[in-house]
């Protein structure tokens, strides 16, 4: 122990000079809505693609939640991010001048599914949110998920005119779409709200027992995930850099790269497309 402390004191004297980040590396972050395993390896390919296309050093910064991604974006620790609908709005409000560049083909008309455990007796595929939801337990996904929280809460309030806490016997936040499915399938929660693409992928892969849990209602379409870039990148990386990034994203056609998101491709989008999300976020008190 004595030696340990002696060595420590010595080391602190010699501690390697902290490598500060080089200023001209372009950093981005992305959180897919399913399968976050091997994120670094998978997104390294995207980083390589962007580096080749843009001719700058590109680095992928792994983060775990949308709020963390927003903080990194705000603090200029990343300049480009693949956000959800709500987190994109949060980020653009915090960083004036930043803009939405591109969204996934699927994101122009994204949906949430309300799913229910079969034992609740709530029938599948209804035209509207059923009255029979009342008194059951319910779980959202993550607290700031657009498809797992924001839009489902919006449609619940629109249909029933009251807060989810008043409608349901209990409201939980599973933290993740995959987990929402698992919790409703096991009957831990009676009803849940989930991202439609995660649900479809899980059903296709056979990870869901559709005898035990089924889709009750599909929300109308709303805009969701998008790439957002900071407003000051042109000043740092050269005029027209924003447009070049947009072109690089739109030109991403390699299925191997797109699979990471997972999207079929990217299409252009503007900040205005997310005005409905912003309004809903303000109404629900998630934005201020």
């Amino acid at each position: 122990m004595r030696r340990l402390i002696a060595t420590t004191l010595m080391l602190l004297g010699l501690a390697p000079v902290a490598q500060t980040q080089a200023q001209d590396t372009f950093r981005f972050t992305a959180i897919p809505d399913e399968d976050q395993t091997r994120l670094v390896e998978r997104f390294q390919k995207v980083a390589d693609y962007l580096a080749d296309t843009l001719d700058v050093d590109v680095e992928y910064v792994p983060v775990k939640s949308y709020s963390a991604a927003v903080s990194a974006f705000r603090n200029d620790q990343v300049q480009l991010a693949w956000f959800g609908g709500l987190s994109g709005v949060q980020a653009r409000r915090l960083v004036p001048g930043s803009q939405a560049l591109a969204q996934g083909v699927e994101d122009a008309a994204f949906h949430s599914y309300f799913i229910a455990n079969a034992d609740t007796g709530i029938a599948a595929d209804q035209d509207q949110l059923p009255e029979s939801f009342e008194g059951h337990s319910f779980t959202f996904g993550a607290k700031t998920s657009t498809s797992g929280r924001l839009m489902p809460e919006y449609y619940l309030r629109e249909r029933f005119g009251e807060a989810p806490e008043a409608l349901f016997s209990r409201v939980g936040f599973s933290g993740d779409h995959t987990r929402t499915i698992a919790l409703v399938e096991s009957g831990t929660y009676d009803v849940g709200a989930v991202n439609y693409s995660v649900w479809n992928a899980a059903v296709e892969a056979g990870r869901v027992d559709t005898d035990k849990v089924h889709v009750v209602w599909e929300t109308p379409a709303y805009p969701d995930y998008q790439w957002t870039i900071r407003g000051d990148v042109d000043a740092r990386f050269g005029d027209g850099f924003t447009d070049r990034v947009r072109q690089a994203l739109l030109g991403m056609t390699d299925p191997d790269l797109l699979e990471s998101f997972p999207r079929q491709g990217f299409i252009p989008v503007s900040n205005d497309a997310y005005a409905p999300i912003e309004t809903v976020g303000e109404d629900l008190g998630l934005l201020r």
Binding site: E34, Q36, T37, P62, V63, K64, D176, T178, R179, R207
Partner: peptide
Amino acid sequence: GFVGLPTLGFHLESAFREGHYHQ
């Protein structure tokens, strides 16, 4: 790792949350 620093918990939480129980 549960809040995102890339320690062992980062991978553990991701795998557990998404149901990759073998990992």
